[in-house]
Design a protein around this nucleic acid. Sequence first.
RNA 1: GGAGGGAUGGCAGAGCGGACGAUUGCGACGGUCUUGAAAACCGUUGGGCCCUCACGGGUCCCGGGGGUUCGAAUCCCCCUCCCUCCGCCA
Length: 427
Amino acid sequence: MLDVRLIRSDQESVRTGIARRGEDPAVIDRVADLDTRLRELTAKRDALRAEVRSISNEVGRLFREGNRDEAAGLQAESKALGEEESELDRTAGELSSELRELLLRIPNLPAEECPDGSSEADNVVLRTHGAEPASYGDAQRVPHWDVAEDLGILDVQRAVKLSGSMFVMYRGAGAQLVRALCQLALDRNSDIYEEVRPPTLVRTDTMVATGHLPKFVDEAYQIERDDLWAIPTAEVPLTSLGRDEILDEDSLPRRFCAHTSCFRREAGSAGKDTRGLLRVHEFDKVEILAYCRPGDAPDLHAEILSRAESLIADLGLSYRVLDLCAGDLGASSRRTFDIEVYAPGVDDWLEVSSVSWFGDYQARRANLRYRPDGGKGTDVLHTLNGSALAVPRVWAALVEVNRREDGSVTVPEVLRPYMRGTEVITP
RNA sequence: GGAGGGAUGGCAGAGCGGACGAUUGCGACGGUCUUGAAAACCGUUGGGCCCUCACGGGUCCCGGGGGUUCGAAUCCCCCUCCCUCCGCCA
């Protein structure tokens, strides 16, 4: 959520930011107008309240002194003012919820350094690491769904029987590989990131705090009967972990990592990537996340990115890092780096991590604050996060990259300890 | 699921219609005393919004929402959450 005060004081730069995303900045006018009216109204209401209050005190005093007649006159006066006041209060309430509704749907402003552009095509490739796509051999040019089916480690057909299309089931060594990946990702980060195992069903407020609601209702699985939502990422519970709290400055930054299932309806992508693991409704992911002082955000952004990157590198995958352009940025983000791994079997770069800096956008929604040392009052925190490891696409890339002539798949060195020493997956 | 009891400041815990944003205790912070520390004593110790360059002022907040009243932490209604007991169950 943007700070209304920013809209009030520097409307122009807010409009520019919204426009850079390719969205219509007209909504800013409506917000500014509502805000002005609301402030006029509350000023009037507050003045009336103050008057009612002081008259009421006077009434109390008169009653105690037994001066009933005078008290009765004042009561009438106060009652009239009170009615006027509650009328203003009602209107103010309406305006303020209207204002909040609008604000909740306005995306974050892209950071200045965020590249211009209107779509995916304009994202900037910052660097590429590992083997060239062209260097992969014929043995590696088999899509993971075929590799996996030959080995019996992925059972899409039966998953569909249980849950419908775009659900998958890993079996045998495939299931072990999922577990190995998650454990590896947790272990590599639990040095300074506190490991958390949060709930995966959350209340509406929790989804609102990260920006997943109200704008993206169609993307989320809802359990209507109990008014709960299935999380699309651990970012959701981890961000709300500190909701409505005021942290001491010396406890910052706070770092968390969590392995959870993630649930996405993928509503807008019917018919896209329907085979294999490229797009599924339920998957495992290890997320790392931090709360920090605004000034520390750039360092943490770099830290999270480098942790995500080094893990992919150690798995032996080729990857590239993209600096997302303003038009392709997620709604809550100010700046995002994507990591894409090259999967030779499907001959494509797969997004496996999104490392985002949200500024105070989510923290404002979540009411996540800290108390500056020595200073007065409270400040809003910044939040950042990134996928340490999103299982399905990494799994897919791994089995394609490590496939040998005979159809077996070698297990990367770093994963072997987590797979009871298995070096090769054979049928 | 049934029956009761709760929700107040960092924590503990008063308050039961009028000067209560809230007695008090603990904790924390500052000071006095002390060679230093402890003890003792004194003082400070919430958040949101609005107006103001600032000093300062106004208003809201006693789980959330509505109501009664000139006036609500206090009375009424609804909701949520927590605790205890019973039942069920991994």
